[in-house]
Computed example of a mutant assay.
Amino acid sequence: MTTEQVQQWLDDYRTAWETRDADAAAALFTDDATYREQPYEEPYRGREGVHAYWTRVTATQSDVSFRTGRVVTAGSNAAVEWWVTLRNDGAEATLAGEFFLEFNEGGLVRHLREYWHFAPGHIEPPTGWGQ
């Protein structure tokens, strides 16, 4: 995967999250994908699992703003930091995280692992973030 291909996938992911579109999110993954949101829990499996997860977690979200840092690629793998501000049940919140992505030949994600941190309120990234 090229940096540009990964960035396009991230742009599509951003659109899906900011519009809370579970169909668009699920379409970014392979039929047999794994989406591991928490390292100690079972991953969500396949497009159906991604769709169910996204439907549940975005139901209370609004005013989502998603941005990413510099993409790092190695073959079919990519890693990238992300920063999100949103409202959850009306309360401002900030999420800072990182994706590790494995793509198939068609540009869909086969495996996603994410690590993220939550803070109440709207927080801007620190200087130099995402470089």
Rank of each mutant, 00 (worst) to 15 (best):
T2Q: 14
T3W: 03
E4K: 15
L10Y: 02
D11N: 13
Y13Q: 08
Y13E: 11
R14Y: 00
T15S: 03
A16E: 01
W17V: 05
E18Q: 08
E18T: 02
D21Y: 03
D23Y: 00
A25I: 00
A27P: 06
A27H: 04
F29Q: 01
R36M: 05
R36F: 01
E37D: 06
R45T: 12
G46E: 07
G49T: 12
H51G: 09
W54I: 08
A59W: 07
S62K: 09
R67L: 09
T68R: 03
G69I: 03
G69L: 02
A74V: 10
G75P: 02
N77G: 06
E81T: 12
W83Q: 04
W83P: 03
V84S: 05
T85W: 01
N88D: 15
D89C: 05
G90D: 10
A91Q: 14
A91M: 07
A93D: 06
A93H: 11
T94V: 08
T94I: 08
L95C: 07
E98G: 15
F100L: 14
E102Y: 05
N104M: 09
E105S: 12
G107F: 03
L108S: 03
L108K: 11
R110A: 10
R110S: 09
F118Q: 11
P120R: 00
P120N: 01
G121F: 06
G128I: 13
G130C: 04
G130T: 04
Q131F: 08
Q131N: 15
